[in-house]
Every structure is written in C-alpha cells, then in structure tokens.
Design a protein around this nucleic acid. Structure first.
Lengths: 183, 183
DNA sequence: CCAACTTTGTAGCAGTTGCTACACATATAC
DNA sequence: GTATATGTGTAGCAACTGCTACAAAGTTGG
C-alpha cells in the first residue's frame, strides 16, 4: 500500500486545521510543514508544490462547508427567505462554520488579485452556497428565486465582513433587521 | 520650503493610484517605489517604513471614499431603505468607487489576520459607511435605524464580494431583489 | 566661500521565499 | 541477492523581503 498517500492525507488534515485556526497569514511551505509536523522537504514530497498543498487543503474545506450545509437541512425542506436567512446566519456565524467563513473572506480577497488557487476555491464555495440557498427557498418563480438567493447570499457574506471589521453586536443587529424585514 | 514633504505627497498619490489599480498584490517597497517612479531608497526617505507608506496611502483613499459618499448626497436628504440601497449600489459598483470597494475587501481580509495597518483602515471605511447610511435613512426610531443601517451595509459589502467571485449579472440580480423587497 | 544641512545613488545585509540536488536508507521485485 | 522503487534527512541555491550604512552631491545660511 502506498504509504505516501496516507501520510499525504494525514498532513492535509493537520494543515486544514491550521488554516482554519490562523487563516492565510502563515502559508509558507515551512510553516505549513511545521503545522503538519513534518519537514518542508517531506511536504514537497507528498505534494507537487505549494499551490498543490493549498488547493487540496482549501478544496477539502470547501467540500466540508457544502457538506455541513446540506446535512444541516433535509434536502426536501423549503422555507421562506426569512427562515432561511436566520438558519444560514446561525450556521455561518456559529461554531459550525465561523472559522470557515473568515477563511473564505480571505480567499475572496486573494481571488480579487487573481492569485492561485484562491480564485477557484472562492468561486466553489460561493456557488455551493448559492445552490443550497436556491434549493431551500420556497419561491416558485425561478427568476425571482434566483434573484432572492443572490441577495440572501450577499447578505450572509456581508454580515461575515461586518463582523470581521466591527463586532458581533452589529452582526446581530443586521441579522435581526433582515429577519424582520423578510418576514 | 521642505522639498521632502511635496515629493512625499507626490509619491503618495501615485501609490494610491497603483493600489487602486492592482490591489494589495504588489505592496513590496520596491514595487511601491516603482509605482511612484522613484527608488526604494527614496521611498524610505520620504516615509518611515513600509507600514507608514501603506497607512498614509490607504487612509487617504479611505478619506476619499467618505468624501465621495458625502458629496454624492446632500447632507439633509433622507430616503427610504429601498432608495438608499439603490443609490449606494450605483455608487459602489460604478466607476466612482468600484476599485475602492475591491481594495476595501482586500483590507478586510488582511484585517482578519490582524495585519497592520489594514485593521484600522478597514474599520475606518466600514464605520464611515455606516454613519453615512444612518444619516440618510428615513427612519425615526434610533434602534431600528441602526439595525437597518447595519443590514444595508452588509448587503452592499456582500454584493461587492459576490461580484468578485462570480459576475456583475449576479450583482444586478441581488440589487434588484433588494430594491424590490425593501420597497 | 565655507560649514551645516538636505537630498540622492550604490551597494549590500540578514532574513525569508519556493524549491531542489545529493546522499543515504529502507522496502519490494525477480 | 541484487536491482529497482520508494522514502527521508542535510544542505543549499537563487530570488526576494524590508531596511540601512556609506558616501557623494546639491542647497542653504552665515
């Protein structure tokens, strides 16, 4: 059996934990290797290069995010925009996905400057989220549902941004205002 | 007369243009100096260090953003949330502030990892925006107005994020849905 | 005109970056 | 058992980072 593959997987999960905890601040090969508990030499033995590491780690996290979303709500469950925003806010702002959202914002920023592999990852999470919202929105008209989904996603992402810059209080206010308005 | 001060100011404006065009991707001292058309040696003669350069440049841009906002709408003009979101979206997504918003997102991401001086700048812009929204919202109840302002700001920022990751079409959809909903 | 001060170029340091060459070990294949 | 593939440590390279020492040139006040 290929020892390489299992050790690669092992390193990967440690690196994902590291990224979720510290964000994209420490993404040097030596720092990633240290987080995985191995030498940089071995990190680059398990992976092609730095981009390969980050791509694997982040797309794994992205998959987890989608997974978390889809297991949190039964696939056939539909709800109003008001209910949905409340549920989404609870998920994204709580322990379930708080770290992921922060990391996601950093990916989007890196995507803004066309850095690899962040562009792809940011898009992936964004699209996954959009599909999830769309699937659970209780709106028949397709165009209206898609537009509402885009708006709700913007709202969720914006609240994450708001909380990074200010505090959770302001986030609460925004969520409550949105729930009340949409109700 | 202090030649240093004027040349510092000159370098600063060129660096601001550079940042607005290329984002935070090229913020090395040599690259900033090149953007200003001077040697890195001189850049660090006009400024204390790299942080000093970025702080001066970004806080200047931040001031411009606030200025743009306040000159775009007469100070005593109040409007509904619907009108306001439409106006804000026009400003932030158009030529007036598009580049600034992208840069702002990058600052927030850098702020998320507590990098200097981005934390301060991101907060500055966010607060300025919040004040502007609050001042023009036609809602009497203070708590409700503050909550609505937070929500609208989240919406605007979220739309910026959405457009970075996907496209302007999705941004349009989100804006239209928001305007219709708030109306 | 000379001394003091401001401005500028050349060169480079010490640290980090992503990555690799080389050597050696261990395991597997025949 | 010998050859081939897989794994791992040591060392280091070339490019880059922010920053600075040194020296020379220009500018100014007396």
């Amino acid at each position: 059996m290929p020892k390489k593959a299992t050790q690669r997987a092992n390193a990967l999960s440690k690196i994902q934990a590291h990224l979720l905890k510290t964000g994209l601040a420490a993404t040097g090969v030596r720092q990633l290797a240290a987080a995985a508990g191995i030498s940089d030499r071995m990190l680059l033995y398990y992976f092609d290069d730095k981009t390969d590491v980050l791509e694997a780690a982040l797309s794994g996290i992205s998959a987890n995010v989608i997974m978390t979303l889809s297991t949190a709500v039964p696939p056939d469950r539909r709800m109003s925009a008001s209910e949905l925003i409340e549920m989404a806010a609870n998920l994204t702002r709580g322990e379930a996905m708080g770290a992921e959202m922060r990391l996601f914002v950093e990916c989007v920023a890196a995507a803004a400057r066309q850095e690899k592999p962040y562009e792809m990852i940011a898009k992936q999470i964004m699209e996954g989220f959009l599909i999830w919202i769309d699937a659970h929105l209780d709106i028949d008209d397709v165009a209206e549902r898609k537009a509402t989904a885009a708006m709700l996603l913007a709202l969720i992402d914006g609240i994450a941004l708001l909380e990074i810059c200010t505090d959770q209080v302001r986030g609460n206010m925004a969520v409550e205002a949105a729930v009340k308005l949409l109700d």
